[in-house]
């Protein structure tokens, strides 16, 4: 399990645009770097990131080796209703992790 950090407001007014910042611990090995013996290290990256709001996708990203290690993505969404936001990262070597954060929407 990689360490994931998600920063977003716990509550919001209906219709408010909230900022979500998601970061996950991952080396994002590019597949171009040599190791100590000069052999190229195999690629090991996170390839996709998806954010679902009560099951419906509101944001997605396709990642390539040019993303920094411990990929950080900040984006926005409209707070429509109370519920949960689900964040999923998928990558090479069967990497898959999902985090959920609850949000309370008032008004």
């Amino acid at each position: 399990m990689a360490r994931a950090l998600i920063t977003m407001p716990k509550s919001a007014k209906r219709g408010e645009i909230i900022e979500i910042r998601a970061l996950i611990g991952h080396p994002m090995e590019t597949g171009y770097r040599p190791d100590a013996n000069g052999k190229t290290l195999p690629r090991d990256i996170i390839r996709s990131f998806v954010c679902r709001y009560n099951g419906e996708q509101v944001f997605g990203a396709e990642l390539h080796p040019a993303m920094s290690a411990n990929p950080y993505i900040a984006f926005h969404t409209v707070a429509t209703e109370s519920g949960t936001l689900e964040f999923t990262w998928d990558g090479d070597n069967g990497f898959s992790q999902t985090e959920t954060v609850a949000i309370t929407v008032s008004g």
């Binding site: 645009i17 909230i18 709001y53 419906e56 996708q57 509101v58 944001f59 997605g60 990203a61 396709e62 990642l63 390539h64 040019a66 993303m67 993505i73 984006f75 926005h76 969404t77 409209v78 429509t80």
Partner: peptide, 10 residues
């Protein structure tokens, strides 16, 4: 990187 957005992104 490629991001997928929609009207719900706000």
């Amino acid at each position: 990187v490629k991001f997928a957005l929609g009207p719900r992104a706000g």
